[in-house]
Design a binder for these strands. Structure first.
Length: 1054
RNA sequence: GGGCCCGUGGCGGAAUCGGCAGACGCGGCGGAUUUAAAAUCCGCUUCCCGGCGACGGGAGUGGGGGUUCAAGUCCCCCCGGGCCCACCA
């Protein structure tokens, strides 16, 4: 082997060489600090450069280590950051750890090892793996959310929420706020109450405060005692204690997320789970509902994410309506039942009402002796039913409460039922049921035999009638056409967006067959429409339709679409003949004038449940005095650290008991010891023993990176406003590019926006929105195998039998190869460490970027990695002599290659800007293919290698630096990663002459070469002079010539 | 059930603004080199028809229709796949 001639080529690019040069350069870069980015005011900061803040969603460091999905987004941002740095930007590109969380705690329960230990180990492993990729993070800014120096400020932000309220009338801080209102310190509210500048009352926006309390306005602040003042102020806080129904598992001693509850039992252990109201910390995110919605406008975010946020916020406009309860038994206590509806226009069709099983009215009825039989049993069953169960079975269940309400529009007495399809958490927990026009109400009414009353008449039929009227002399053909229209109208439950398109389709269908039969359905509808034709708004014809034409009902559906009202009249008001929007306006106006209801904006968004009964999270900076009142820990006393514990097993209990409640010595202390504000230092206090949820740390980490070591503030004003501030050319400030998975499209991004906005309102940060531009990388998938019954088989239990034939080893059964998510159980997870060992980090980076568009999901193909390795090997061979390891430099410049190089630089730069790394790499491969000589002679001058290597550097930083160094450039000018992006000579991008296609009737027939700047006339002349074209148009008339300068010529011949 | 996204060669994908469909890579086929294989290098590679060949003709971007001189791209309908939300009145 050793005498093999090619063996002398010992300087070839191999995996071994990659694994030698990569760590070597990583160490050298760290030593030189080339990825350090100084802050304003620090040595080495260049104020003349614009800034670029590029943020990756920081990982949760799991024990399993890095997944191939992590480096996908990280490589993309790395390329952009390196490119931006070369293009003259100050680049902030940090990395850290989202390290509080459940998995570490679960592991601690099993092993007794403190979560901090396992988490620190996982962080060290993640850091090692990330560094091996050569990412240009400024590691001097690294932190974890579990660092005391970090979560101290998480607690500090919580206290800002605790000490603030939302003033809907306050002037926004700047014009980027698109909806009124702003958070203000609660001290200002107190001062306004005390001075009489503001009427003293409970917070009208507080969901946790009873309506009766909210209705009252107090004479003066002095009238109230200290306790009452606290109650009033507490109702305004953005962080407050409120009741929320949760899934409570006594055996596990914790509340569970809905996903952790299956069939009413805990996922772990199978213990029973109960829905239980629990008093805990809530954040008043609903106060920001309008702003979180309105400020989405103007963000450069994926449309799908914007949509998801809008839907999650779920703003709807409707009305609150009071239904009288004249015969309610004593003890029910309410004279009216309040409902929320988005369709007040359908009130004439409200034939019964439904309240949630948790509704106070139900409890009131149950206290009464006259409660109907079975009600108690139903309510108990329903209240203990988990959300998961409710979702699994959508069969309607319910029970009559025996109460009767009065429909204010019709004056009729209607029954009040209870059912779990009405949720206590939305609106007022009660609805007016309109079974004719709401699918859920319809199903309920069908099941329990409740009356159904139509009041809205579908518009397509009105449109069809107009169409019919336009053709009074309709013959067979038109009848056929109309029958098609009608069959479409009646066969589709969706409202056609455009009636003309239906007509168009009908015309197309019937065009081929003039005698198309008139179907029985169409016949019926033609009859109905005949009756209707005389009067759109009403009359006997329309009434006939209403009575006979209950098409939707016949199909087992309620008609929920837009349309016109009918049968909607009493002595007080008539909605007959009105379209839905107008009918809504009229009925709400009438209700308001009668004092029976008013317009109401409702959000789907609920306040954020912020307490967890867990250990491994941020402790609340809150203590309770002996009277049970909460008090803030002062800013100076932060952080409140977690107590050491030896046993992480939750306590079995009937009452919710957080894990920290076991830490007796920590739990019970004095106000002085805890640093509590406004209490006698000797007073005994109990610490809040819940911890914050995993989301807390990720709500503001983008701010900390700007100044991670600051001990006085969450970040200095200078650093924060420089990195997060507005750019001269942009309306919005914030992070310039935020890249991460689409799984965070709602919760993380909504929570972070909320915190950021509060900090903005209070003057702690300089922008209204945290993330100006957002991008989601697509999932990286893998192969898996599927049996005929669709069950999946791990890849190690399958063998290949020839072309595309796979069988399960154990059974010999044939299985299909499919694309699936990587998962441990399928044994198809790719380990980044292995890929780097086999090919090097540069190849790995290139491969992941070459797989396809960054935002699409793509299957991992181990074989295709080879292609990227070959590319890098060829680049190496292009620049470095295999035998000597010296650079291969041509003396004279090849003009064609020079042109290509300029185009490549231009294309790659543009592609990076639009995150199209796959095509950028393709362009570089093309250049390599053109430049690589067949005979082994050098083709590129030193200057050309210099520029090409700079172009490749953001993608393959190690190989580029090595070639750069062997070219002598490192010694002369320092690292390739601190060089400028190669300049593009515009004149090199255009050719003198270009080949343009000549089409005849849109079909390519020939090509002609014309000067690049040829005008229309010249192009036309050249095209018509072409031999082939002349031949083809021989004897035909050229009717028209389409010339697109620089692109093509198209001849229209006839 | 609702919303969003996506369907292009054997495979991943390209076509950035309605203007030459299939760039680039993988795989495959043929050849060179080799005692041989691997590796490497060179060539071909959407399909169909004709031609020894240069080449010529036709079809073609899930299916059907429309707009246009021109459609992968825009509009309508249908089919298939994926993701998210899901009793929110």
């Amino acid at each position: 082997m050793s005498d093999e001639p090619r063996q002398s080529a010992s300087h070839r690019y191999t995996a071994a060489l990659a694994n030698e040069i990569e760590p070597r350069w990583q160490a050298r870069w760290a030593e030189l600090g080339i990825d350090r980015q100084p802050n304003p005011g620090e040595a080495g900061f260049d104020a003349s450069r614009p800034k670029f803040y590029c943020l990756d969603m920081f990982p949760y460091p799991s024990g399993a280590g890095l997944h191939v999905g992590h480096p996908e987004g990280y490589t993309a941002t790395d390329i952009i950051c390196r490119y931006k740095r070369m293009s003259g930007f100050n680049v902030l590109h940090p990395m850290g750890w989202d390290a509080f969380g459940l998995p570490a705690e679960q592991y601690a329960i099993q092993t007794g090892v403190h979560p901090a230990i396992t988490t620190r180990e996982a962080i060290d492993n993640f850091r090692r793996q990330l560094r091996r990729f050569g990412f240009c993070y400024d590691w001097s800014r690294e932190f974890g959310t579990i660092d005391e120096g970090y979560y101290r400020w998480t607690q500090w932000v919580f206290l800002r929420l605790y000490k603030s309220w939302y003033d809907p009338e306050a002037e926004p801080r700047d014009a980027t706020v698109r909806s009124p209102g702003r958070a203000r310190p609660i001290a200002e509210l107190e001062a306004e109450f005390a001075s009489g500048a503001r009427p003293v009352r409970f917070n009208p926006l507080a969901a946790e405060v009873a309506d009766a309390l909210k209705a009252r306005t107090y004479e003066s602040w002095d009238e109230l005692d200290a306790g009452a003042r606290r109650d009033v102020l507490d109702s305004y806080r953005l962080a407050y204690l409120g009741e929320q129904t949760v899934n409570w598992c006594p055996k596990l001693g914790t509340a569970l997320a809905n996903e952790e509850v299956i069939d009413g039992k805990s996922e772990r252990g199978g213990f029973p789970v109960f829905r239980r109201p629990l008093r805990q910390w809530m954040l008043r995110i609903t106060a920001y509902g309008d702003r979180l919605l309105a400020d989405l406008e103007g963000l450069d975010w994926p449309e799908s994410t914007l949509t998801q946020q809008r839907e999650w916020i779920g703003r709807s406009e409707g009305a609150e309506i009071d239904f009288g309860l004249p015969e309610a038994p004593m003890g029910v206590g309410a004279a009216a039942l309040r409902v929320y509806t988005t369709r007040p226009d359908t009130i004439f069709g409200a034939t019964y009402m439904v309240v949630a099983p948790e509704h106070p009215l139900v409890d009131a009825v149950l206290k009464d002796d006259g409660a109907p039989g079975g009600l108690r049993e139903y309510v108990e069953w329903a209240r203990n039913r988990s959300d998961v169960e409710r979702q699994e079975s959508k069969d309607k269940t319910g029970c009559d409460t025996g109460l009767r309400a009065v429909n204010p529009a019709t004056g009729e007495r209607i029954p009040v039922w209870t059912s779990d399809y009405v949720l206590m958490g939305y609106g007022s927990g009660a609805i007016m049921a309109v079974p004719a026009h709401d699918q859920r109400d319809f199903e309920f009414a069908e099941k329990f035999g409740l009356p159904i009353q139509d009041v809205v008449y579908p518009k397509p039929l009105l449109a069809a009638s107009r169409y019919f009227k336009r053709r009074p002399n309709a013959g067979e053909k038109w009848r056929a056409e109309l029958s098609d229209v009608l069959s479409m109208v009646t066969s589709e439950n969706t409202e056609p967006r455009d009636f003309d398109s239906i007509i168009e389709r009908a015309r197309v269908r019937s065009a081929g067959d003039e005698t198309a039969p008139v179907t029985p359905v169409a016949e019926e509808w033609l009859g109905l429409l005949d009756g209707l034709a005389g009067d759109d708004a009403g009359g006997d014809g329309a009434r006939d339709v209403i009575e006979r034409g209950r098409v939707h009902r016949a199909r087992g559906e309620a008609f929920a679409g837009d349309g016109r009202l009918w049968h909607s009249a009493n002595a007080g008001i008539s909605l007959n003949g009105l379209a839905v929007p107008e009918a809504k306006r009229q009925i709400v106006g009438w209700l308001e004038s009668e004092g029976l209801g008013q317009k109401k904006v409702q959000f789907r968004l609920r306040d954020w449940l912020f307490s967890r009964q867990r250990y491994w999270g941020e402790p609340f900076p809150i203590v309770f005095d002996e009277a049970g009142r909460h008090h803030a820990v002062s800013d100076d006393a932060l952080p409140v650290t977690l107590p050491e514990m030896t046993d992480y097993t939750p306590e079995e209990s009937d009452e919710p008991k957080p894990l920290l409640a076991k830490a007796g010595a920590w739990l019970r202390t004095t106000a002085g010891e805890a640093g509590a504000e406004g209490l006698d230092p000797g007073a005994g206090v109990t610490r809040e023993s819940n911890t914050m949820p995993g989301w807390a740390g990720s709500c503001w980490y983008h701010l900390r990176y700007t100044d991670p070591g600051n001990t006085d503030r969450l970040a200095s004003e200078d650093a924060e406003s420089y990195w997060m501030g507005r750019q001269p050319d942009r309306e919005l400030g914030g992070v310039d590019l935020y890249v991460g998975g689409a799984e965070h499209a709602v919760l993380h991004l909504l929570y972070a926006r909320f915190w950021h906005k509060t900090l903005f309102d209070l003057g702690h940060v300089s922008t209204n929105e945290p993330y100006r531009k957002l991008f989601h990388q697509g999932l990286i998938l893998s192969h898996a195998f599927q049996r005929a019954d669709k069950s999946l088989v791990p890849v190690d239990q399958v063998e290949e039998r020839g072309e595309d034939e796979f069988v399960e080893t154990a059974t010999g059964e044939r299985v299909a190869q499919i694309i699936a998510k990587m998962s441990k159980s399928l044994k198809n997870v790719v380990n980044p460490d292995d890929v780097i060992a086999d090919h090097g980090a540069d190849t790995f980076r290139l491969y992941e970027m070459y797989m396809g568009p960054l935002d699409q999901q793509k299957p991992w193909d181990t074989r295709a990695i080879e292609g990227m390795f070959r590319f890098l090997r060829d680049v190496w061979r292009l620049c470095i002599d295999d035998a000597t390891g010296e650079p291969r430099v041509a003396d004279a410049e090849n003009g064609d290659l020079e042109k290509r190089l300029h185009r490549t630089v231009d294309k790659v730069g543009g592609d990076i800007e639009r995150l199209a790394f796959n095509t950028a790499i393709a362009a570089m491969i093309e250049f390599k293919n053109a430049a690589l000589s067949k005979d082994g002679t050098p083709t590129l001058t030193a200057d050309q290698i210099d520029r090409f290597v700079r172009t490749l550097a953001p993608f393959a930083p190690h190989l580029s630096e090595e070639i750069w160094s062997r070219l002598g450039r490192f010694d002369q000018r320092g690292s390739v990663h601190r060089q400028a992006w190669p300049e593009v000579d515009e004149s090199k991008l255009v050719d003198d002459s270009i080949e343009i296609p000549v089409q005849i009737l849109g079909k390519l027939r020939s090509k002609v070469t014309v000067p690049a700047d040829a005008d229309k006339k010249a192009m036309e002349t050249a095209a018509l002079a072409d031999e082939r074209i002349k031949e083809l148009i021989e004897g035909k008339t050229v009717r028209k010539v389409i010339v697109v300068p620089g692109r093509l010529v198209n001849l229209v011949v006839g």
